[in-house]
Amino acid sequence: MMAPDTSDDVPSCACKGVRRCLVCEGLKEKVQPEIVHHFLYDPQSRLAVGKDAQAASFPFSGVFLWENFISEEEEKELICAMDQDVWKESQSGRIKQDFGPKVNFKKRKVRVGGFSGLPALSHKLVLRMYQESALDGFQPVEQCNLDYHPERGAAIDPHLDDSWLWGERLVTINMLSDTTLTMSLEQGLPELGLTGEVHVAVNLPRRSLVVLYGEARHKWKHAIHRKDIHVRRVCSTYRELSAEFLPGGQQADLGAQLLNIALNFQGSPV
């Protein structure tokens, strides 16, 4: 008897386009930039400090870091609650839980779908955010929990978050391990004599909160590289609505409906 043909038994993953994980790594080619200038973000001075002694530092705006935003006990409580819900396979080796409306970004369509609100434990965290002036008036309409694990080769490639639906501030709570958020600018900074790609590493301590806004939100791409995931890392990212969905905007009624659902804090993953 002939052995069954297993040539098509290729493990599946959720990666699409240029995204990759350890399952599909050998099937996709990644082109590396020829020249990369490396800097480190200093949250005290808010400067990007050159890792090369010859590279000059420069102001890096649009990043706010809040260390020890949650306690160790709160972290345990949050992770325990997440692990009692279902994690779904996502791209680039991640798994996720979504608390938000159903969105088709290509067609620019939004519907409530199964959205029932943000999770209950997020209520106290959102109230705490209001203590910081950088988050004044922040009303999250979506929360995405992401689980990164080195065994899956989890990462997220450099990208800009949508700005049609999502507003000015992106807020992320980093849990279970320290990691690095890499900001990148492909066109370089010719005014500083940096003609290659520029990377600015933003160190994210465990249990910290980071806010991206302004140039860091709209000009610089952000990524979590595989090399910076050493043990399990979980994050919760909160997004607010753009002006189109706020009072006075073209879709203000839909925005009000979504916020009313989101801020009841009785949600489960969709």
Rank of each mutant, 00 (worst) to 15 (best):
M2N: 12
M2P: 15
A3M: 06
G17K: 06
G17P: 02
R20H: 10
R20M: 12
L27V: 03
E29Y: 08
K30D: 00
K30P: 00
Q32E: 15
P33N: 07
E34P: 10
I35R: 07
H37I: 05
H37P: 00
F39V: 00
Y41H: 02
Q44Y: 08
L47A: 02
A48W: 07
K51A: 03
K51W: 01
D52Q: 05
S61R: 09
V63K: 04
E73M: 01
E75V: 04
E77F: 13
V86L: 15
W87C: 06
E89L: 13
S90N: 11
S92E: 14
I95M: 13
I95E: 13
D98W: 12
P101D: 12
K107L: 14
R108K: 15
K109C: 08
R111Q: 15
G113T: 03
P119W: 11
K124N: 04
V126Q: 06
R128H: 11
S133K: 14
S133Q: 11
G137A: 09
G137F: 07
F138D: 05
Q139W: 09
P140E: 05
V141E: 01
E142Y: 11
E142D: 02
Q143L: 15
Q143P: 00
N145D: 09
N145I: 09
Y148Q: 06
H149R: 11
H149D: 11
P150K: 04
E151I: 10
G153C: 12
A155M: 14
D162A: 06
W164S: 07
W164I: 05
L165Y: 06
I173V: 15
L176Q: 15
G193F: 11
G193A: 09
T195Y: 15
G196S: 02
V198Y: 14
V198R: 07
H199K: 12
V202R: 04
R206E: 12
R206D: 05
R207W: 08
R207G: 02
S208C: 11
A216S: 13
R217V: 11
H225D: 01
H225Y: 12
D228P: 05
I229M: 01
H230C: 10
V231L: 00
R232P: 03
R233D: 05
V234P: 05
S236Q: 07
T237K: 02
L241T: 03
A243E: 14
L246I: 00
P247F: 00
G248C: 07
Q250K: 15
A252P: 02
A252K: 08
A256I: 01
Q257D: 08
Q257G: 01
L259N: 01
I261L: 06
F265N: 02
P269I: 09
V270E: 12
